[in-house]
C-alpha cells in the first residue's frame, strides 16, 4: 500500500549545521509513530518538515500523494490535510475557544458558521471541555489549552496529526488529561507522528518507535523491541538516562 507520508533522502541545514541527515521514512495510514531522542537531535525539525514549517534543502517529501515543493498550492493543500499541536499551544489569545476552533474551517474550508460551530462543539465534547467554549485561552489551565489546541487541529478534519512535544510545557498533574485525549485519537485510527518524552505513552500507543540522534534515524521498531531490547548503543545510553 502507498504510504501516506513518504520521505526520501531528506536533508536539512540551519546554516552550517546539518540537522537532518539522509532521512528515509514511510508512514502508513492509521499508523502511530513516536519519535524519541535527546534534545537537538532533529526530531522536532523532522515533523515540522512534513507541513513545511521547515524547508528542506535536499530530498523529497510526499504527503497523501502531494509532492511538497516550492509550489504554494501544494503547500496549502498539504497543510489542509495535516494538523499540528505545538509544545506552547499557540492558541490565538484574542479569540474565544470557539473562535479559535472555527476560524480555519470557516475561512479555509469555507464552511458556514453553523456547521463549523456544531463540529467545534462536538470536538470540545470529545476532549471534555465543552463548557469552556466561550472563554479566552488565558482563562484556561495549560492542560485545557492544549486540549483546545488538539480540537482546533482536528476541526480541519486532517488525515495526519503532528504532535511536537505536546506535554513538555505542562505541569505534571495536567499531562495525563492531554495524553488521554491523544490515546483516544490514536484508537480512532488517526495517523499520528508524536515527538515526546512520555515513554509510557509510547509503549502503550505507538505502532512504531523511532530513535533519533544528531539528525539521523538511529533505530526504529516496535515499542517493546526498542525499549526492552535496543540494538544500538546510543539508544541504550539514551534510554538508560531517561528511564530511572
Amino acid at each position: 500500500m502507498e504510504p501516506i507520508i513518504r520521505m526520501e533522502n531528506v536533508n536539512k541545514w540551519f546554516g552550517a549545521l546539518h540537522v537532518l541527515k539522509d532521512i528515509d521514512l514511510n508512514v502508513q495510514k492509521g499508523e502511530v509513530v513516536v519519535i524519541i531522542g535527546p534534545s537537538g537531535s532533529g526530531k522536532s525539525t523532522l515533523i515540522r518538515t512534513i507541513n513545511r514549517l521547515e524547508e528542506i534543502q535536499k530530498g523529497r517529501i510526499v504527503v497523501d500523494g502531494i509532492e511538497l515543493n516550492r509550489d504554494v498550492r501544494n503547500i496549502d493543500a498539504v497543510r489542509k490535510e495535516v494538523g499540528m499541536v505545538f509544545q506552547s499551544f499557540n492558541l490565538f489569545p484574542h479569540m474565544t475557544v470557539l473562535e479559535n476552533i472555527t476560524l480555519a474551517p470557516r475561512i479555509v474550508r469555507k464552511w458556514p458558521r453553523e456547521k463549523a460551530e456544531q463540529i467545534a462543539m462536538e470536538l470540545l465534547e470529545r476532549v471534555d471541555i465543552a463548557d469552556q467554549a466561550e472563554k479566552y485561552p488565558a482563562q484556561l489551565s495549560g492542560g485545557q489549552q492544549q486540549r483546545v489546541a488538539i480540537a482546533r487541529a482536528l476541526a480541519m478534519q486532517p488525515k495526519i496529526m503532528l504532535f511536537d512535544e505536546p506535554t513538555s510545557a505542562l505541569d505534571p498533574e495536567m499531562v495525563g488529561e492531554v495524553l488521554d485525549a491523544m490515546k483516544e485519537l490514536a484508537k480512532s485510527g488517526m495517523t499520528m507522528l508524536v515527538v515526546t518524552h512520555e515513554m509510557g505513552f509510547a509503549r502503550e500507543v505507538a505502532d512504531r518507535v523511532i530513535f533519533m540522534d544528531m539528525g539521523e534515524i538511529i533505530e526504529e521498531g516496535k515499542p517493546d523491541q526498542v525499549f526492552s531490547n535496543p540494538r544500538h548503543e546510543r539508544t541504550q545510553s539514551f534510554l538508560a538516562r531517561i528511564i530511572h
Binding site: 496549502d76 497543510r79 494538523g83 480555519a104
Partner: peptide, 25 residues
C-alpha cells in the same frame, strides 16, 4: 512566532494569517 506557525499549520494563507491572527494582536 508560534502564532504564525499555528496559523500556517491550519492552512491559512499569508494574507489570511495577517488579517485574522497577526494584525488584530
Amino acid at each position: 512566532k508560534g502564532q504564525y506557525e499555528a496559523a500556517w499549520a491550519l492552512g491559512l494563507s499569508g494574507s489570511q494569517s495577517a488579517r485574522f491572527i497577526i494584525l488584530p494582536q
